[in-house]
């Protein structure tokens, strides 16, 4: 397994798309959060007594960053099928599930680094931007801080979400092979549920869809106020993890059983 890891790490390190994509994850995550923070102002709401979930607001960019994570994950697998290099890979490393495991490990490491940077910078950006929009301690909004338990949980959970989305992408790519199809399937899984929930009016269905939606359930961890969500942060992450595990299982079976 050590040789598999070193081989897959060398592959990721030497393909020109890795660094730009990782930078893309960071940039979109931070930009999305900063824009959301900049577009929200306090006074209108303060009068009516409602409260903003500023932590969640600051992490809005995760919604954008994850799309780049999906591309990174899918290319790690489908890129090899597209060029036929997968045959070289499997002649060098015939234990195909070990190859998939090594790819998953390397992808987890790379995504983790980008996600930590992106999430930390998002919180920092919000901390700098929000006071200018009226979210000041005087108005009852203390500055965002990772020393605050719920905020730390939301930030760490967002990082975990991005990693799980990467694993979901890798599993789907191993299962369907074609990069365009894989990216379509993963983005569909992520963004279609929220759309359906928005369109469907029946509340029971809305709730059920929300609970099985990888995106909604996974990002429940970002909520720091009691928003009455259908799932708590832990259960939400479990739903997303289950999707990722299912995808990896399907991908692993397909890779093992089919001719390369």
């Amino acid at each position: 397994m050590r040789r598999h890891l070193r081989a897959e790490w060398t592959k990721s390190r030497t393909v020109p798309s890795t660094v730009p994509l990782l930078l893309g994850v960071v940039a979109l995550t931070v930009a999305g959060g900063a824009m959301a923070s900049a577009a929200t102002t306090a006074p209108a709401c303060a009068a009516s007594g409602c409260t903003f979930d500023l932590t969640k607001l600051s992490l809005t960019g995760v919604l954008l960053g994850q799309a780049v994570v999906v591309v990174l994950a899918v290319l790690a697998m489908s890129g090899e099928y597209g060029t036929g290099m997968v045959r070289t890979t499997f002649t060098a490393m015939p234990r195909r599930s070990a190859v998939l495991a090594a790819k998953a490990a390397v992808l987890t490491g790379l995504t983790l680094v980008a996600a930590v940077i992106g999430v930390l910078a998002s919180v920092l950006a919000a901390r700098l931007i929000l006071p200018g929009n009226g979210f000041t301690p005087a108005h009852g909004y203390p500055a965002l801080s990772l020393a605050d338990g719920p905020t730390l949980r939301a930030a760490a959970g967002s990082v975990l979400c991005l990693v799980l989305v990467a694993l979901l992408g890798l599993g789907v790519a191993a299962a369907v092979r074609d990069p365009a199809t894989a990216i379509g399937v993963v983005l569909g899984l992520l963004y279609l549920f929220p759309l359906l929930i928005f369109v469907i009016s029946d509340q029971a269905w809305q709730r059920l869809l929300w609970q099985v939606s990888p995106l909604n359930a996974g990002l429940a961890v970002q909520s720091t106020t009691d928003a009455g969500l259908p799932l708590g942060p832990g259960a939400g992450l479990v739903v997303l993890a289950a999707w990722a595990a299912l995808a990896l299982l399907a991908g692993g079976l397909r890779v093992r059983l089919r001719d390369a």
Partner: peptide, 23 residues
């Protein structure tokens, strides 16, 4: 098998490098 079965963006030496690492 197929000389074109490689990642076109990777250098020739890096292609051999990951293969070497795998062994």
């Amino acid at each position: 098998l197929d000389a074109s079965a490689l990642q076109p963006g990777r250098t020739a030496r890096d292609h051999l490098m990951w293969l070497a690492r795998s062994q």
